[in-house]
Amino acid sequence: MKWKTNNLLFIHVTRIVAFLILTFSIYLFFAGHDDPGGGFIGGLMTACSVLLLYLTFDKRKIDEMLPINYVYLIPAGLLIAFGTGFLGILFADPYLTQYFDYFTLPWIGEFELATAVLFDVGIYLGVAASALVIIVTIAGDE
């Protein structure tokens, strides 16, 4: 990889910041229903954190650390997103109808469960994987 760097400061900051961004992206994903965030933004931010790793370290090292073929994640995410749509059909509603309800658990209190989260998981995976695939492929081109 041509863009390997030896900037010590950059390397050390990345080691911490990349995982902060990753954590924040997961927070953003779950915040999505009621606050700014969601699958699209969360996915992009996840991609950003991984890209930061790629920018800082050797591609081979990152490939060892994250042995994931992002290409497979694209159809996986799409299948999840398209698949949750069939839930609506099962209940004789239009395709992609989302359901939600509120539950109460002791100690935790009231919380909400929504099928939209499942759908969002699909979007999250699809977006993150697409962004990564495009950039990593172009970067890896000799």
Partner: peptide, 14 residues
């Protein structure tokens, strides 16, 4: 209808 308070996101996912 969708149980979410962030309108932008509810439009996106629901």
């Amino acid at each position: 209808l969708a149980g979410g308070y962030n309108m932008v996101n509810v439009v996106l996912v629901d």
